[in-house]
Amino acid sequence: MKPLLAALALSTALTVPELAAARPVTLTTTLNAYGGNGAYLAIYVTDAGGAYKGTLWFAGGKSKYYSHLSGWERASGGRLAEISGITGASVGAGRTLKVTLDLADALFDAGYKLHIDAAAEDMRDSPSDVVVPLTAAGAGRPARGRSYVRSFTYSM
């Protein structure tokens, strides 16, 4: 996938006031060959207390299926404004989604967690399939998801 630059403007915690306080981060998500249609994925961030901070990427085009990403929907309130401009196609089984965006330095080593909700047609809903703390040391270390995600890595 074409690397993308995205600034998260919806939450003050993620706002990038000037480029100097941000760095490009690449999120690499590889799915299992689960034998189903393309999966919808929501990649979002919560703070140490579990409160929603913002969405980083959203894969899947039809909003009527967004309720299957129940963790994201509960956290964000399911507002489409949250994901405008950061939406792509659903991700096929066994395929890899690679997204590059500018993240604020303040997000790292401050207790923030990155979540991935996943769901596919006629299969289980998997809220928080992946949950990883955002730390500088954790960069480049692959994490395994519960159902759909074979490996997830963020690298700077």
């Binding site: 009527k64 967004y66 309720s67 929907e73 509960r74 399911g78």
Partner: peptide, 16 residues
């Protein structure tokens, strides 16, 4: 319904 030209009634359900 798929193209959104008639409502399919899908909703997010009640708020958590």
């Amino acid at each position: 319904a798929t193209f959104g030209m008639i409502p399919d009634g899908a909703s997010q359900g009640p708020a958590f």
